[in-house]
Nucleic acid binder design. Sequence first.
DNA 1: CCTACCGATCGGTAGG
DNA 2: CCTACCGATCGGTAGG
Lengths: 196, 196
Amino acid sequence: METTASTLSRKAQIDQTATALFRTRGFAATSMRELATALGIEAGSIYSHIRSKEEILHRICFRMADQFFAGFANATQDDTQPAAVRLRRAIESHVRVLTLDVAASAVFLHEWRHLSEAARNEFLTLRERYEVNFRRLIQQGIEAGELHAPDAAFAALTLLASLNWLPNWFKPDGKLTPDDIAHRLADQLLLGLAHS
Amino acid sequence: METTASTLSRKAQIDQTATALFRTRGFAATSMRELATALGIEAGSIYSHIRSKEEILHRICFRMADQFFAGFANATQDDTQPAAVRLRRAIESHVRVLTLDVAASAVFLHEWRHLSEAARNEFLTLRERYEVNFRRLIQQGIEAGELHAPDAAFAALTLLASLNWLPNWFKPDGKLTPDDIAHRLADQLLLGLAHS
DNA sequence: CCTACCGATCGGTAGG
DNA sequence: CCTACCGATCGGTAGG
């Protein structure tokens, strides 16, 4: 009952601090001692809140996955819209999730390989399903004559790759808002660089 | 003199085996014992050929950087060509370097953060310079009316992000040759997904 | 949340 | 290239 909106639980603090460390130094190169020091406590104390180092990574990765899925579902649920419009909205949603927490996004994108094999397989299945969602949207757009691409799978991979580079350079306090960026990315990917 | 074209020097063997391990398990999570086992020797023996674990990573990263720069210079040296054509050739060169050794490319793209601070700074300076090369090419294309984009820097980042995702899915024995892929990528990035 | 500690493993070296 | 080893550090635990 002491907890206010601005006070993170100790567990949430651990997650947040670990996210920043995992992002800059990598999961394997980050020690629990470093994490403890950053939190201002002793290494052993962390284990009253979590079971293992991997558990933190697991939570970060799967929380982000949930957000991407929820955002996509919400952005594309309106079937009355053309596929190209729904694709635009899906792109905007993806960018919004990425920019809301760039550190967690970077961990989600790069550190999943350090999950245990079982968790890693589950993670990759989710990622594959998410890619299929984009692929299907592009495929629908092709069939409706709104989009053109020799291969929807290829197009989906390229599109997501462009979006996922964002955590590498996005600064929350920059001139461009997440929505500005989303629009530019969508324009560039949909319209191309060549003058028409 | 025993060395034939198909026989790698021990040092080259170490680099190659380490590249594969660094790629799948990450630099920090790969131990010198694992590397030794993969080579069929004892851990201590590696140090007759190299000075440190980081030296291997250093060589992989900077060798790839050299290849990207050499390829770009070669692809864009003909000033009589339009900027859009030179950009296409630069894309093809980049894809060629990536596909020639996807494992080394993946290490180059993801593991540079484990270089020592001095080497890391040098590496990032090179990467920045490479990106500027693409940015300038795009800028020239915009000024010549061959390309259109609200921001050349933004366009360059997005373009390279799409290309650099390649090592994550490219299979050397797949149906598409590197040149096929380069053409498709160039088409998609230059022409866009939207029907014109 | 701390103190004190566990066994395991790390990168690297000396001497042959 | 191996054997034998170094000091340091790792993730994690017991007991308070």
